[in-house]
Design a protein around this nucleic acid. Structure first.
Lengths: 111, 111
DNA sequence: CGAATTGTTTGACAACAATCCAACTATACG
DNA sequence: CGTATAGTTGGATTGTTGTCAAACAATTCG
C-alpha cells in the first residue's frame, strides 16, 4: 500500500482549496466522497461525462490542493476526503460547501 | 444613485462564488470589505500591487459572482459584501472563508 | 469650458486549464 | 507469458484568466 504525494495539513492553501472546489466536476467528486466515503477512482468518476484521463487530472488537482487523500492498493487507487485535515486548517469550510452544494434551493417567499 | 447589474440571491452559483474567492487578489478585497465595510473601488484596491484596470476586472468578477454589491454615487462606486444574501444562499460559507483567510496558522504541536 | 478624479473598456499577450485521444505503466488473473 | 483492469501521462487543441497599457466615459470642480 502506497501513499501518493500530498501537501501536509499546514501547507494546504485556502485559495487552492477554493479553486479545486470551484469546478463542477470536482465538486461532484467531492460530494460523492462525502456521501459514500472512500472509493476508487473508477467509482468516483463514474458517469461524470468526461474522459477517464480528464477525470484523472481532476483527481490530481484535488489531491494537490489537499482536498483528497489517495492511496494505492494493488491496482486500485482509493480516494477519500481529508475531512479532519480540512477542519483543522479551515474550520467549517468543507461543511459549508457540502451543505451549499447538496441542499435544495431554499423555497423563496414566492418572490 | 444607480445599481449595477447583479445576480439575484437565488441565482448566485456556488462554483462561481468559490472561483471568485479563489484568487488571492479578490480574496484580499473581500477581506477588506469584511473588515471595513462599504468602500470605494479606489480604497478597496489600494496597494494591491496590480494595475487599476486589473483591479477593475476583479471587481466585476466579484460582482458577477454575487459576492459584492456595487452602487454608484456620483463618480464614486461603493462596493460592499453581500453578507446576508450569501448567508441565505450558502449558510456559513462566507464566515468560514473569512475565518480561514484571516486566522493565523494554528500553532501545530511543534510537529 | 477645461482639468482632475474615478473607474471601465478594449486590445494584446502570456499563462493556465479543461478536454479528448492515444500511448503508456502497473498490477492481477488465466 | 498474454490479456484484462485501473489509472496516469503526454500531446494537441480550445478556451479562459490575469495582467498591463492606453484610450475612453462620467462626474466634479475651478
Amino acid at each position: 500500500m502506497r501513499l501518493l504525494p500530498h501537501p501536509s495539513t499546514e501547507n494546504i492553501q485556502l485559495t487552492e482549496v477554493l479553486r479545486a472546489l470551484s469546478d463542477p466536476i470536482r465538486l461532484e467528486i467531492v460530494i460523492r466522497l462525502a456521501t459514500a466515503g472512500e472509493m476508487t477512482c473508477t467509482v468516483a468518476g463514474d458517469d461524470l461525462g468526461v474522459h477517464k484521463s480528464t477525470a484523472s487530472h481532476h483527481y490530481r488537482t484535488l489531491r494537490e490542493a489537499g482536498v483528497v487523500l489517495t492511496k494505492q492498493e494493488g491496482r486500485l487507487k482509493y480516494m477519500s476526503l481529508r475531512r479532519d485535515d480540512l477542519e483543522t486548517r479551515f474550520p467549517g469550510l468543507l461543511d459549508a460547501v457540502l451543505t451549499a452544494a447538496t441542499r435544495p434551493l431554499p423555497a423563496e417567499a414566492h418572490a
